[in-house]
Amino acid sequence: MLSPLMPPAQPWPARDITHACSLEVSTKDIAALSAAASRILPGSTIAIPYLPREDDDARLAAARAVRKLGFEPMPHLSARRIASRAGFESFVKRAAAEAGVERCFVIAGDPSTPVGPFCDSASLIDTGVFERPGMRVIGVGGHPEGHPVMSKAEQWDVLERKCRSISARGMAPLIVTQFAFDADIVLTWLTALRARGMHHRVRVGVPGPASIAVLARYAAVCGVGACASMWSKYGVSIGKLFGTAGPDVFVDRLAAGLTAAHGEVSLHFFPFGGIAQSVKWVEQYRARTALAA
């Protein structure tokens, strides 16, 4: 059986975009990652979210575990949850020294009022803290289906400024999108991104297989639109909202619509239904793609 994230001996068709996918894995799910590790491409990026009820020691332990498994840890940093510059700088230094971290992902975070000196992700980038211990990649968020508090013009302006700042500091920007339900919207967003001169690598957020109730709950929490028309485009029948759903229709449509003009695009999985289920889905998708080639 094909390993889901392992590259095959022969090149896959261009429409298979699972070859370089990454996973979002919380500290509490490291055991599940370990169980699936043999089926994941060595060197794959594993993003570690910054959850409010976890401390830096727990996040660093997760990063060390990810590195020990042979993957690239990418810890998140939530600007408005960071209490001090000293604490921020200590975390980045320790991440590099203890877990070989070379990439981080920055977000503003949910609190409306910062607990410390950082109001947004740009303020973290602008400190110069990341490049000193040798960070090579800084991830920032993209929002194809919109942002809960920013207009479309503001979103583009912020994204452009962050990418410029990262590049100016000698690091590579990586754009990771919020998970989406409408592939056509994502394709339009990618076209606009490239037209604005941002040719950085993009990882499109995809929910792993999960119950529709779970998907709807995460969508509501994250501010992602999930109206009836979007559910339909995602392949979910309104009459079957109590079932489960995988991203088959979304990924098929996205892959079919991608062209060379869209640049380097791969997938980032949010394994809401569990890591094992997401890995299995990739495995099955690859097998189906191979048969169709």
Rank of each mutant, 00 (worst) to 15 (best):
R85T: 10
G100W: 10
S78Q: 08
G70S: 07
R80D: 01
V101R: 02
R94E: 01
R59S: 07
A58E: 10
V66N: 03
F91I: 07
W156Y: 10
G134A: 12
M135H: 04
Q155N: 07
I138D: 02
Q155H: 11
R81V: 14
E154N: 06
T113G: 00
V149Q: 03
G70M: 12
R161G: 03
R94L: 03
R161A: 09
K93D: 11
V137Q: 00
A122W: 09
G100T: 09
A153L: 13
L124K: 03
V106N: 00
V115D: 02
A86G: 06
D126Q: 11
R81A: 09
R59T: 12
A122T: 08
S121A: 14
R80P: 00
V129Q: 08
D57C: 07
L69E: 14
G87V: 15
M135Y: 05
G128N: 13
T127N: 09
W156V: 01
G100P: 06
F88T: 04
G146S: 07
E102S: 03
C119W: 00
V129C: 13
A61N: 08
P144D: 13
A95D: 02
G109Q: 12
G109C: 06
P75W: 03
A61M: 12
R67G: 10
H147V: 08
P117V: 12
K68I: 15
G70K: 04
I82L: 11
A65P: 08
E154H: 11
R132V: 12
G146L: 11
E131Y: 08
I82V: 15
C119N: 08
V106D: 00
A61D: 11
G139Q: 07
A61F: 13
K152A: 08
P133K: 11
D126W: 02
R103L: 10
W156G: 01
H143I: 08
A86H: 08
P133Y: 13
R64K: 13
V158H: 03
A96L: 09
F91M: 02
H143T: 13
S121Q: 08
V137C: 01
S121T: 08
V140A: 01
P117I: 12
E160M: 10
L60F: 14
A79D: 04
A65T: 14
P144T: 15
I82R: 07
R103V: 05
D120Y: 02
T113I: 13
H76K: 10
H147I: 05
E160Y: 03
A62N: 12
A97F: 12
F91P: 00
L77A: 03
E102P: 01
A122Q: 14
G134M: 11
G134C: 11
I107K: 04
F105A: 00
V115N: 04
G142L: 14
R94G: 00
S84L: 07
G146I: 12
A61V: 15
R80I: 13
S151G: 08
G116P: 04
I82E: 06
E145I: 06
A61I: 15
L77P: 07
E89H: 02
G139T: 06
G109V: 15
T113P: 02
G70H: 04
A62V: 06
P111D: 03
P114S: 11
G109L: 09
P144I: 15
A79W: 12
V101W: 05
L159I: 15
S151A: 07
P114I: 13
